[in-house]
Each structure stands twice: as structure tokens, then as C-alpha cells.
């Protein structure tokens, strides 16, 4: 088995599906000869040619429209939005068009489109590159939103996303692209969308999280262990639709929960998870469900990002609040 970074696992997933299905097309700004600004499409243009892997003019709405149109011709487009902060330019294609294609056509047309895009803080990008905007997407009926936290998950989830017959927003945390390697099978495998994973079992508190915060939460769980608290860590992997069953089962066991997200606190995925727990498991709770999140601002300019971003210490502090409630 090969040791891969997340970016290599993503390239591997794209290659797998380009080989498997002649309808899969990979395109976006600089994804062709250049292999993408993060090298996510490295070597694919050479292997599959201009017809399957190609550059687009520099216009995100055009890329979204291209995906809509190609899907109407029976293709399975996998466009890249170079940085997810640019999503505002393509919001109509996502929320106004792709998400509604199936309903609007009474089921005649589906939109099997996977939009890949890097996001996330901690890598000192300019403005409009790092914001966590998955909450905007998760509020959009008709699309699925997937955020892997490991190379292994990235490959299995991306293959599932490409094969899915509904539009999927596949968000890749920039800090995780090359931060560590993991054993990733060279052969194809899938991880179902909409299924969370218990990353670490525990009995005292459930830490529900996703993306880069999975790693902060695991680190926090180790520290808590030293202090005699057993924390369970759940990686949502798909933030829309949520895996309610895994969340509720865990909370019923531990009786305490916190939800950790990198995004600003307001109206996000964490708020949705808290609400679902309150709806379904309130009688199991020994303490209120608290959130760890960034402040309600836009993503900061790089000089302030280390303080702005939630980290394992914030997770420990908040976990202790519910553990000692």
C-alpha cells in the first residue's frame, strides 16, 4: 500500500474515475497542463488528454454553467473552483441551477456534478481564499457537502462523490493537503456519503467535528485522557446531509457533547448539529451542548489567523465546561 498525502489521494481518486468512466471530465482554471495550483490534477492532462482534462477561461460562473451544460449532455463533470472563496461568483450555478435541476425537470435531468475546491485557514493565504463557507452550501437543498479529514477518506469519498447522481460540493482543507501521509490503497474503494466515522471511542463526552478540526479534536482527546476524561471523537465527513444516527448514538452513550468547527460561529454546521441533538437526544444530556468555533467575523488577514482559528486548547476548555457542568 502506498503512503499518500491528501493531495495525492485526491489525484489518485480523479485518475481512478477518469479511467473508469469516459463521461468523467475534469476542468477548471489551470487544471490542465499545469496540473492545478495545488497539483491536484498533476499528470492527468498528460494521461487523459485535452478532451477529458482541460483548462477553462478564468470565470467561475462560466465554469459552473459549463458543468450544468455538460451534465445535460450526459457527462459527469468534476470542475475545480480554484479557491472556495471564489464561490460567490458561481453561486447561481450551484444553488440556482445544479441543486434544482432534478426537481425543475420533474426528474428528467439530474446533475451528477462534483465541484472540488480548496478552503481552510492556517496557510497564510490572501483574502477570499480560506473562509469556511460550507454552512452556505449546507443550507442549500439539493446539494451534498463533503469535507474529508484524511488522505484515505479523501480518495474514498471523492470516488463516491463523482459516482453520485446529485451535485456534490467537495471541500479540501488546504492545511491538510500535505500535512501528513497515510496508507492509501492503490485499488479503488468508496466511502459512502452521509456517513460519519467514530475516530476515537470514548465514554464521557462526544466531540463532533469535521475537516482540519478533526485533528485538533483528536489532540484534545489525548490531553483530556491524561486528565482522566474519555472523549469520543466523531468525524462527520459529510456535513450535508448529516449522519444523525451516529451523532445521536454517541450522545446517548456519553450524555455530553461539544461541536467543533473552524468556521465562524453564526448559523453554521455546528449550530445544526446542536439543534439535531436537542431535537433527538435531549433526555440523554447531562449538560448543554456547546460549540467551539471561530468568532463571527470574516476570515482574517493572515497576521491574525493563528488566534482566530480554533485549536485543541479551545476544544479542551469547552469540553471541560460540559464535563464539569
Amino acid at each position: 500500500m502506498a503512503q499518500m498525502t491528501m493531495i495525492q489521494a485526491i489525484t489518485d481518486a480523479l485518475r481512478t474515475e477518469l479511467r473508469n468512466d469516459p463521461n468523467v471530465l475534469v476542468f477548471g482554471e489551470d487544471v490542465g497542463v499545469n496540473g492545478g495550483v495545488f497539483r491536484a490534477t498533476e499528470g492527468l492532462h498528460q494521461e487523459f488528454g485535452e478532451d477529458r482534462v482541460f483548462d477553462t477561461p478564468l470565470a467561475e460562473s462560466g465554469i459552473g454553467g459549463l458543468a450544468v451544460g455538460l451534465s445535460l449532455q450526459g457527462f459527469r463533470p468534476v470542475p475545480e473552483i480554484q479557491f472556495f472563496g471564489f464561490v460567490f461568483e458561481v453561486m447561481d450555478s450551484i444553488a440556482g441551477q445544479l441543486a434544482r435541476q432534478r426537481y425543475r425537470s420533474g426528474g428528467r435531468y439530474s446533475a451528477p456534478v462534483t465541484i472540488r475546491s480548496p478552503f481552510g485557514g492556517g496557510v497564510h493565504t490572501p483574502d477570499m481564499h480560506a473562509d469556511s463557507l460550507e454552512g452556505l452550501m449546507a443550507q442549500t437543498p439539493g446539494v451534498k457537502v463533503v469535507i474529508p479529514s484524511t488522505p484515505y477518506d479523501a480518495k474514498g469519498l471523492l470516488i463516491s462523490a463523482i459516482r453520485d447522481n446529485d451535485p456534490v460540493i467537495f471541500l479540501e482543507h488546504m492545511k491538510l493537503y500535505r500535512s501528513f501521509r497515510q496508507e492509501v490503497p492503490e485499488e479503488e474503494y468508496t466511502i459512502p456519503l452521509g456517513k460519519a466515522e467514530v475516530k476515537r471511542e470514548g465514554t464521557d463526552v462526544s466531540i463532533i467535528t469535521y475537516g482540519a478540526m478533526v485533528h485538533e479534536s483528536l489532540k484534545a482527546a489525548e490531553e483530556l485522557e491524561k486528565e482522566g476524561f474519555s472523549a469520543e471523537v466523531i468525524d462527520l465527513r459529510t456535513v450535508s446531509p448529516l449522519d444523525i444516527e451516529t451523532i445521536v448514538t454517541s450522545v446517548e452513550k456519553t450524555g455530553r457533547a461539544i461541536v467543533v468547527q473552524e468556521a465562524q460561529k453564526q448559523a453554521g454546521v455546528a449550530a445544526q448539529v446542536v439543534a439535531e441533538i436537542n431535537d433527538r437526544a435531549i433526555l440523554s444530556l447531562e449538560a448543554p451542548v456547546l460549540r467551539v468555533a471561530a468568532p463571527d467575523t470574516v476570515f482574517p488577514f493572515p497576521q491574525a489567523e493563528s488566534v482566530w482559528l480554533p485549536n485543541f486548547k479551545d476544544v479542551i476548555e469547552t469540553a471541560k465546561k460540559v464535563l464539569t457542568f
Binding site: 478532451d51 454553467g65 450544468v68 455538460l70 445535460l72
Partner: peptide, 16 residues
């Protein structure tokens, strides 16, 4: 919106 989608449908026809 139909203008950008048309580019996609047309490109699909060309590929097919």
C-alpha cells in the same frame, strides 16, 4: 444563466 449553460451543452456536443 442560460448563456453559460449553452456553452456547456455545445461543448458536450462537440465532445460527443
Amino acid at each position: 444563466a442560460q448563456y453559460v449553460q449553452t456553452a456547456g451543452v455545445a461543448l458536450g456536443m462537440k465532445k460527443r
